[in-house]
Amino acid sequence: MKHSAFSNLGSFLLGGNHSVTSPASPQAHQINGIWWLMFWVCGAAFVLTMLSMAGAIWRRRKAIEVDHARDSRRAAFVALASGIVVVVLFVFLVASAVGMKKTEYIETRNALTIQIIGHQWWWEIIYNDPVPSQIVTTANEIHVPVGKPVLILTSSRDVIHSFWAPNLNGKRDLIPGYQTAFWIQADHPGVYRGQCAEFCGHQHAHMGFEVIADPAGKYEQWKAAQILPAKEPEDDVKRHGREVFLSHPCVMCHTIRGTDAGSRVGPDLTHLASRGTIAAGTLKNTTGNLAGWIMNSQSIKPGNHMPSMSLQPDDLQALLAYLGSLQ
């Protein structure tokens, strides 16, 4: 999941699942329209400027001769060019004002509400519900139904972060102690990558997330599975793995619903195996990656807030088997 600067630039211009130029929501279409308007107008202005400069170099000034008629023609030309610049800037102003207005507005009936809390360096995702037993908490993966407006309430637990899924909407800052709200809506199914867009410390670059837009039925299925407490381990190895989890440092920071682990410092691990990535979009969720992360997370994301563990090999294997069973 590592993105180099060049591949990011490429996907920005050519589209992709982390790009302003392949919009997948009404707001992103607005932003995309403004981007291409500015791109073509500024591109044309750049080409014209370069051409006239080349022309000026080509037709270098001959001996100094005073020609008042030509001077007044030049003055008229400069005034005309300035006028065109002002008009073009006004066009931009109106286009962005109209675009912003449309980006703010969205059909809000039967909307879904998701609360997103920024942490150094991961995202806590809470699906609010008036019935407490229906509240779903997960991390770094936001599932939304296609075609349904989603109200996102954001805040932060530590420093300022910024939520940015370029295919869906612009950026929105997550501010500690202050709740902001904005809307997203996915037009078609897909996986859209997002990223923290406000420098928030050591591992800012590894603070990614995924928005997974599913058809309504599939989304309901996902949510019904997430509401359930963690699966009971069905064999001795996994039962031992749960013992390891509950008697070692893991339990001091993580939650697994259905067990005694209920701490809210780190991501909720109740359905860890259902997620595609670990460490906020840094690594694919495989057994090997998870083992490396548990034993020495500091070599993968230096400075992150999870201390490295020291576990006996048997304990580690049992723990991995248990975590791998948390679908």
């Binding site: 008697s247 070692h248 440092p249 339990v251 001091m252 563990m309 020291s310």
Partner: peptide
Amino acid sequence: RGKIPDQQ
């Protein structure tokens, strides 16, 4: 006890 490895 047991929650922080002894070396740590």
